[in-house]
Design a protein around this nucleic acid. Structure first.
Length: 481
RNA sequence: GCGGCCGUGGUCUAGUGGUUAUGACAGGGGCUUCCCAAGCCUCUAACCGCGGGUCCGAAUCCCGCCGGCCGCACCA
């Protein structure tokens, strides 16, 4: 089992499609969700809302995707989101300007210089391509953000590279209108855009991606609140570096300084337990603590929630302690007051973020659920995230069974994700539903007509139980929660 | 972005210069059967990634582009 097997099934059944496939020469890094994929994403996000947003009484908002240049000047994305690059004139190898100079002069070169300063250093030190010894081009920048022009003047603006900035810039109005008490999570689901140089691995590396982000705003003086006590005994699968995780309780992790304080422990526990809830085995989850050299520029403490896949550990959630970096910068650049009231004291909130990649998470769930047993292929998705929860089949296409099955279908389709199917043999329909990950199939047979019972077939065990038609909605509700 | 390999219906695949381009699976319709992909009939579906070139003739040879995989680089 590997990436290709899973994607093959996902494309065949309509989870994902390559975007704009009908046109030739469509660039890589863009994928569409098919009908089953949309249902899957919706079910997954509903669980995210239930388990994180509602449970922790967060507020969900939905902000714009295009924002003016100034926002990204403040956020640091315009300067930090780019690397200075030079290219060999002959073999076209690309180097980072600072790194290639460092190699030649044997001492550290700052990352934040201007292009002209790098050019001067390159010339002074006669830096050549280390591959073919030919001259290098002048320093150029590649910005990972998509630039757009607003209005007839094409005023400089960008598609957001993360949904977080939309939350940050809304902080003053949120606090004026929502009677917010710290700490408070602000959540958002939406698209982000990153102009990757060479996206590979399909759905795992996208130029247009789906994120579900949570920005927890808190008073840095109050990180020891009673509500965080609920997680103290929870075992976090922490990995200090690229190693197997070692479970450690939140209280121990704080005591040992692995995590800065209880608040962060509490939210790491929420996100880890969310993935356990949606069906990733705990043994396949780790919270990898990032070293200083691999953290984002805005992050002071960072953990990546990663899941073990056939292609190695896959990063699904970036958990960053962004401190007051973002709000300080937005306050400076916008000249707006970003301090908020916390029990009578003015504070500039600190931020801990849980930035989830939705597309990757859905892939990880599919791969984790992918099973092959002989001829049979099925997705052992948990009923709570399965895109279709129940299939309804007449055993045969005669004797009034289709009519009766449609009645059963209509009885449940408003409250459940249900699909009706009368094509082919019953076995074939079971096989089809297995590939779509449908956990329960309801079959209407002669006994339905006589005794008012249906046969419910369970996907993973292939076991069958009889359920009375009038009790079916309640039975399904209890099984698919 | 660099180097190597590759690109035929939704999926897998036959076909390496010559008539309407294989086959299977999947899918649609019909008959029949019915509790785990049965059988029969039938239909749909690829102008062979896109563009250009060589040739009387190109899926097949050449060039460019796009895409995929692997390695390097990149991954805020």
């Amino acid at each position: 089992m590997n990436y290709e097997d899973v994607m093959n099934l996902a494309v065949r059944r309509g989870f994902f499609f390559r975007a704009v496939d009908s046109y030739p020469n469509t660039p890589a890094g863009f994928w569409d969700y098919g009908p089953l994929g949309v249902a899957f994403k919706n079910r997954y996000l509903n669980l995210w809302r239930r388990y994180l947003v509602k449970r922790d009484e967060m507020l969900e908002i939905d902000t714009v995707q295009i924002m003016p240049k100034a926002v990204f000047v403040a956020s640091g994305h315009l300067s930090n989101f780019t690397d200075p690059k030079v290219e060999c004139s002959k073999c076209h190898t690309i180097y980072r300007a600072d790194k290639v100079i460092e190699e030649k002069v044997k001492h550290a070169v700052p990352e934040g210089l201007k292009d002209s300063e790098y050019d001067a250093l390159l010339a002074e030190n006669h830096v050549l391509c280390s591959n073919c010894k030919n001259p290098l081009s002048g320093t150029k920048r590649f910005n990972m953000m998509f630039r757009v022009g607003i209005g007839p003047q094409e005023e400089e603006a960008y598609l957001r590279p993360e949904t977080a900035q939309g939350i940050f810039v809304d902080v003053p109005l949120l606090f004026k209108t929502q009677r917010i008490k710290l700490p408070k999570g602000i959540a958002q689901v939406g698209k982000s855009f990153r102009n990757e140089i060479a996206p590979r691995q399909g759905i795992l590396r996208l130029r247009e991606l789906n994120q579900a982000e949570i920005e927890v705003l808190f008073n840095p003086e109050k990180v020891d609140l009673p509500k965080f006590g609920a997680a103290l005994d929870y075992k976090l699968n922490i990995a200090q570096g690229d190693v197997e995780p070692t479970p450690i309780s939140v209280s121990e992790a704080v005591a040992q300084g692995v995590i800065p304080h209880k608040l962060i422990g509490y939210y790491l526990h929420l996100i880890q337990s969310f993935y356990e809830k949606v069906g990733i085995p705990s043994s396949a989850i780790r919270l990898r603590k990032l070293g200083d050299d691999e953290k984002a520029f805005y992050s002071s403490v960072a953990f990546d929630l990663e899941v073990r896949t056939s292609g190695g550990w896959l990063e699904l959630v970036a958990c960053n302690y962004r401190s007051d970096y973002d709000l300080t910068r937005h306050a400076e650049v916008s000249k707006t007051d970003f301090t908020v009231d916390d029990e009578g004291v003015k504070v500039l909130p600190h931020i801990f973020e849980l930035s989830m990649g939705i597309d990757r998470s859905l892939f990880a769930l599919l791969e984790s659920a992918y099973r092959v047993e002989g001829e049979r292929t099925y997705l052992a998705l948990k009923p709570a995230v399965a895109p279709i929860q129940v299939g309804v089949f007449p055993l045969m296409g005669k004797d009034g069974l289709p009519e009766e099955a449609k009645k059963v279908y209509e009885l449940i389709r408003d409250d459940f994700e249900a699909a009706y199917d009368e094509g082919g043999s019953i076995g074939r329909r079971y096989a089809r539903s297995d590939e779509a990950g449908i956990p329960f199939c309801v079959t209407v047979d002669q006994e339905t007509l006589k005794e008012g019972t249906v046969t419910v077939r369970e996907r993973d065990t292939k076991g069958q139980v009889k359920v009375k038609v009038n009790e079916l909605p309640g039975w399904l509700a209890s099984q698919t929660r």
